[in-house]
Simulated scan of single mutants.
Amino acid sequence: MPTLLVVDDQILVRSGLVALLRAAPGITVVGEAESGEAAVVAAAELRPDVILMDIRMPGIGGIAATSRILEDASPARPKIIILTTFDLDAYVLQALRSGASGYLLKNTPPERLISAIHTVHAGDTLLSPAALQELLALCAPRAAAPPPAAGPLDSLTRREREVLTLVGAGLSNAEIAARLFLSPATVKTHVHRCMTKLALTSRAQAVVFAYEAGLVTR
């Protein structure tokens, strides 16, 4: 059962989300915060499994707060879902690059929001095909440039690079397993090793890395 922290500077929105999610089966709301600064403190004190994080708030915004929270090297780092009214491609990229596990609009239906919380808690990403296409459009110019001769990718084995490339293309572990004739457990191990070696905190962040490193070019 995931524990949850809700972060939003608008009290009506925050209270509504807390009331909705406290009534949802299988989710425990352990706290709420009204700013990015308060979110960083609450995350350290409460250690929630998942955080719903608003983007635009006074002081430290949601993306900066996400980065600060995920700087913690503890294995108990939370999964963070960016929740906002701003449907802008740039926010999608910034949120995922900062380590967020997903991005949802505030007009998302309640059942979809609840499902999203369970999805990221299980270690999956919320990247929809449409969001992935937006990400492609933003990152393709960077990916078109030749990758540097040396860098973080040098720490990966050939198989790990193959797996990371397919993660960047939006494939699930099961789809990667079928493509490479591996077991899902083996793929999961390769994904974990890639993320550890590259200091990535979410699968969505791995997608961004794969594009920006030139592993995925279309």
Rank of each mutant, 00 (worst) to 15 (best):
L136N: 11
A137T: 06
L138Q: 09
A140E: 02
P141M: 05
P141G: 11
P141W: 07
R142T: 11
R142I: 14
R142Y: 13
A143V: 02
A144W: 03
P147I: 06
P148H: 12
P148L: 09
A149V: 07
A150S: 14
P152F: 09
L153P: 10
L153W: 03
L153A: 07
D154V: 14
D154W: 12
D154A: 15
S155K: 15
S155Q: 14
S155I: 10
S155Y: 13
S155E: 13
S155C: 12
L156N: 07
L156V: 09
L156H: 04
L156R: 06
T157N: 08
T157E: 08
R158N: 14
R158G: 13
R158H: 13
R159W: 12
E160G: 05
E160N: 09
E160L: 04
R161M: 10
E162C: 12
V163H: 09
L164Q: 00
L164H: 01
T165C: 02
T165I: 00
L166G: 02
L166I: 01
V167C: 04
V167N: 07
G168I: 02
A169Q: 01
A169T: 00
L171M: 06
S172H: 01
S172C: 04
N173K: 11
N173I: 06
N173E: 14
N173C: 15
A174R: 03
E175N: 04
A178P: 08
A178W: 09
R179I: 08
R179W: 07
L180Y: 10
L180Q: 03
L180G: 07
S183Y: 10
S183A: 15
